[in-house]
Structures are given as structure tokens and as C-alpha cells.
């Protein structure tokens, strides 16, 4: 089995060397590449329990990718635990033969930057297959709070209470970064609000705001319970033209640089990724299948119906963005570390 796979890999490499790497269908070389997955089972690792956003995206994308990898079978494996870390470690440790790919929260960029416990992966050398969505970070403010705009909040005398999920989670750090970026803005972050608990707490009038992904709050906003006071990404301009952008209020160079991290995370949603060392041509086949899958009209119709946004991005693009995001000067990492441990 191993020999055969090696033989195939060598053959594939040879063929790939003979032609340019565009990988478009038609040429005999590309056909051989696609055949690599024929009769094989690909495991798609999802770093959460069944149900929830990552599971929905992962199952949908893998279902459509399978149709673009003729003869292949993609099975789902849910590997939850430790806030996506176990899933990411699992993917990272798997063999780089293209038969294990998966999805986890891009927020793990923070964990790697801060070299937090449990991280057994290096995002910079993983095999990025592609992205399926933007996850535009926004500040959601309760309609029943005293704040009618972001300026109101900046001018507030008392600390503004924000809900966040667990301390150290990506959502928590997103919130703390804002506190660091705007020195005059005092955010009191109250952690432990999982799922929709933060929204309920805002409806009860206990908390004023939370930071999260815009599309997941659409319903809450449509029902008149809250509004977006600030967007942490230029990508928001098209979808939410009236919402002010965070960068416009930043006064320091460090602040802008920290916001750059939020910008990158907003851009890198629902990534499909494999372990390091997937041969370039096999990765090209996977990237091609991913790209075709997320552009498939049926997938787009399905996504529209369940209200999950799709924005495609290539594996090459994702890889470059990840490397940029992780290449931070020491003082920014130090600031981030302070943000992570403050309340």
C-alpha cells in the first residue's frame, strides 16, 4: 500500500514537473492527478461537535468537494476539544498525503502568536486548501443600552460591559484588543457566555455589547434587539455601508497594527486545511476541488437558504494571509499578551 502510494506520488510529481502547474482539466497530467483520489477515502476533520457553524460548513463543503474528486469518498470526523486545539493538532499530526483535511477556528492564530499551552501546530507550514467565508468582526450593541453609537461608548464615563465566551478564546481576545486599541475606551469583559447566552443577557439589559461575527447576528439585529456600532474590517463596507470602521478611530501605530490582526481574521473564515507536506500537485487538486465546490450554484443556493455567507478565497491567498498575520513584531505580540491577560 505504502509502496503503491509512493509510486503514485513519484509518478504524479514527475508528471507535474513535465508541465506547468495550472492544473486545469483536459491535459493528461491533470487527469492523472484527479485519479489520485479515485477509490480513496478522505477524512474531513471538524474541530467541534456535530451541529453548529463549523460542522455545517465542513459537511457542506466536503459533500460538494467529493463530487469534484471523482471516485473519492469524504467522511466526516468530529474531533472536538479544548476550543478547536485538539482538532487542529489532529490535522497537523496526520500524514501529508492529502487524505486528511479539515476545518478549525482561524482564531487559533492568536494561540500560535502567544505560544499558548496545547499548541502542537505551526499554521505557517500547513497546506491551505481554501476559504469559504468572510467572518467580519463587528461590535454588536444592545438597543436597550444607553449607547446609541460608538462615539457614545467612547465618551462613556463608566466601563462598558461586554459579553465574551471563555477567557483566552478568540472572541475574548477580539474584545480585549479593542480595549487596548482605544485607550480612552474602558471595556469590562465578562466571560463565560457561550452560544447565544450573550445575546440573551443583552436582551435582559445586563450587558451592553459583544464582539462577534456579523452574519451570526443578522437575526438579532433584524428583530430590533441590537445594532452594529463598529466593524473591524474594511470588508464590511459593501455589506454594512453605514457602520463605522474601527481603523478610523485608531490613534496609534500599534493600535492600527493590532486591528490588522482583526482585519486578517475577518478575512479568513471557514478555512479548509491539510497537514504540512502535502505534495504540491495533490494540494493543487484539492484546491481546485474546493474552489469548484464553493462556486457550485447548488452549494450557493443551499448556503443562501440556511443564511450562511459564502466568499471564496484560494488556498494560495489564504496561505499568504496566514503567514502575514503570524509575522508580527515582538512589541505587538507583547501588547496582545497584555490584552489576553487583562479583564
Amino acid at each position: 500500500m505504502l509502496k503503491r502510494m509512493l509510486a503514485v506520488a513519484v509518478g504524479v510529481l514527475f508528471l507535474a514537473g513535465c508541465q506547468d502547474n495550472s492544473g486545469a482539466g483536459g491535459e493528461p497530467g491533470a487527469a492523472a492527478d484527479e485519479n489520485y483520489f479515485s477509490g480513496k477515502t478522505i477524512t474531513y476533520v471538524i474541530a467541534t461537535d456535530p451541529g453548529g457553524g463549523y460542522d455545517t460548513y465542513g459537511r457542506m463543503i466536503s459533500r460538494y468537494m467529493q463530487t469534484y474528486l471523482p471516485g473519492s469518498r469524504i467522511i466526516i470526523r468530529n474531533v472536538p476539544g479544548a476550543g478547536h486545539i485538539v482538532g487542529a493538532n489532529t490535522i497537523y499530526a496526520s500524514r501529508g498525503d492529502g487524505l486528511t483535511i479539515g476545518m478549525f477556528n482561524t482564531g487559533l492564530i492568536y494561540n500560535q502568536l502567544l505560544q499558548l499551552e496545547g499548541v502542537n501546530f505551526d499554521l505557517t507550514n500547513m497546506s491551505w486548501v481554501g476559504k469559504a467565508s468572510n467572518e467580519i468582526r463587528v461590535m454588536l450593541v444592545a438597543t436597550n443600552s444607553p449607547y446609541k453609537s460608538f462615539e457614545d461608548m467612547l465618551a462613556a464615563d463608566e466601563p462598558v460591559k461586554f459579553a465574551a465566551s471563555g477567557v483566552g478564546s478568540a472572541a475574548y481576545l477580539d474584545t480585549r484588543i479593542l480595549d487596548t486599541v482605544y485607550p480612552e475606551f474602558d471595556i469590562e469583559t465578562i466571560a463565560g457566555f457561550a452560544g447565544a447566552e450573550g445575546e440573551l443577557s443583552m436582551m435582559r439589559g445586563e450587558l451592553s455589547a459583544q464582539v462577534g461575527i456579523a452574519s451570526s447576528y443578522d437575526q438579532f439585529v433584524a428583530n430590533g434587539n441590537g445594532y452594529f456600532a463598529l466593524a473591524m474590517s474594511q470588508l464590511a463596507a459593501d455589506l454594512y455601508p453605514d457602520v463605522p470602521v474601527a481603523q478610523d478611530y485608531a490613534t496609534t501605530e500599534e493600535g492600527l497594527q493590532l486591528l490588522g490582526l482583526l482585519e486578517a481574521l475577518s478575512d479568513l473564515g471557514r478555512l479548509t486545511v491539510g497537514p504540512p507536506g502535502i505534495p504540491a500537485d495533490i494540494l493543487a487538486v484539492l484546491r481546485d476541488a474546493h474552489s469548484k465546490a464553493v462556486n457550485d450554484p447548488e452549494l450557493l443556493a443551499e448556503a443562501m437558504q440556511i443564511h450562511i455567507p459564502i466568499t471564496e478565497g484560494s488556498g494560495e491567498y489564504v496561505e499568504q494571509r496566514i503567514i502575514e498575520a503570524l509575522n508580527q513584531p515582538a512589541e505587538i505580540v507583547a501588547l496582545l499578551g497584555q490584552a489576553a491577560t487583562s479583564q
Binding site: D49, G51, E199, L200, N223, I306
Partner: peptide
């Protein structure tokens, strides 16, 4: 009524 699911099972139903 609030589109706020009370449990992970209900979150799944909400999506559906």
C-alpha cells in the same frame, strides 16, 4: 420567538 436557541440541539433546529 427570539431566534435564541436554548440548547445545542435547538441551535441545530434553528439552523434547519
Amino acid at each position: 420567538f427570539f431566534a435564541v436557541p436554548g440548547s445545542s440541539g435547538m441551535a441545530l433546529l434553528l439552523g434547519a
